[in-house]
């Protein structure tokens, strides 16, 4: 039995017992992750692992079917000049683009993630959010990236946020649910921790930092707090929850820092695309350039890598 088979049974958590975050401690810990020496062989493995964890993303108002097909092509063929590369974990698009992505990806084994619930603001009535989720799943999305209602969360209506996540989870059916906290809008690390606990208890399969539309998006401190929340939730309930930092992770070096943090906080069990993702649009090419540099010793140029 895999650990993921432990079902989520939504029950409202006792938020008064949620640990407070020591911000200075978090920042010091984060600084340590950035000072690890990574040897070449480990670096190569890490770079390939990062590629396999990427949710290749396009979430723009200007997205066209052509753009989505191009992204899917990139997802399947990261850089064919270098054999032995993994493919990315998923392609992340708006609900209206799910069918295009499904057709383009075919039997490649790459998942289709769709944002839903009035992404990115989340400002829509619940029945519309539920309907949107169902449509995305019906069109072929295997993963749903929902946003929480930050307005309600900040107003202290935790029950509303909890119920909403639980309802969306139900609407997802077999699709995995990633819950975006939009940490850039909820502010303090204490609130990030509280929102993480709320989302996990409500049934989230993944918790995710950001939409990428708000600055700051993913940061190392915020991600550490969420990883710690996942660890404590696992100790409490035995259920594994995945983590997805998204937005602002655009170079390989930073992504490796995130992996170091993952390894030292949650351990090897989480070091797979099943439990960890990077939401990014421009990370893949930088990782590819670093891999190529490792092979040839020559610094690379974006001119020689296909755009995504």
């Amino acid at each position: 039995m895999s650990l993921s088979a432990v079902p989520a049974s939504p029950h409202f958590p006792d938020l008064s017992r949620v640990a407070l975050v020591d911000e200075v401690g978090v920042n010091e810990r984060v600084a340590r992750f950035q000072s690890r020496s990574i040897k070449n062989e480990s670096k190569n493995d890490a770079l390939k692992l990062i590629l396999s964890m990427i949710d290749l993303t396009t979430l723009e108002g200007q997205d066209t079917p052509g753009k989505v097909r191009q992204l899917c092509q990139k997802a399947m063929h990261l850089h064919d000049a270098m054999p032995g590369l993994p493919h990315v974990a998923a392609v992340c698009v708006y609900p209206t683009m799910v069918s295009v992505a499904k057709k383009a990806l075919g039997a490649s084994g790459i998942n289709i993630a769709s944002v839903a619930t009035a992404f990115p603001s989340g400002m829509a009535p619940r029945h519309i959010k539920l309907e949107e989720t169902k449509i995305a799943v019906a069109e072929g999305a295997n993963e749903i990236d929902m946003v929480i209602s930050r307005g309600a969360f900040l107003a202290g209506e935790y029950g509303y946020v909890f119920d909403e996540i639980a309802a969306i989870k139900e609407a997802c059916g077999d699709a995995h649910l990633k819950v975006i906290l939009e940490t850039g809008e909820i502010g303090t690390l204490d609130r990030v921790r509280r929102a993480s606990v709320l989302a996990m208890h409500a049934g989230a399969d993944f918790i995710k930092t950001s939409t990428g539309k708000i600055q700051p998006a993913a940061t190392l401190p915020v991600t550490l707090v969420m990883l710690q929340a996942i660890r404590d939730y696992f100790r409490e309930t035995g259920r594994m929850v995945g983590m997805k930092p998204a937005g602002g992770i655009s170079n390989a070096k930073l992504a490796i820092h995130y992996l170091v943090m993952l390894r030292e906080t949650l351990g090897n069990a989480w070091m797979t695309p099943q439990w960890y993702r990077f939401g990014a649009s421009s990370l893949a090419n930088d990782v590819l350039m670093q891999l190529r540099k490792q092979q040839t010793g020559v610094y690379q140029s974006a001119d020689y890598f296909s755009k995504d």
Binding site: G297, V298, Y299, Q300, S301, A302, D303, Y304
Partner: peptide, 8 residues
């Protein structure tokens, strides 16, 4: 060497 080889 790097000044002459860098692809960018």
């Amino acid at each position: 060497g790097q000044f002459s080889s860098h692809m960018d």
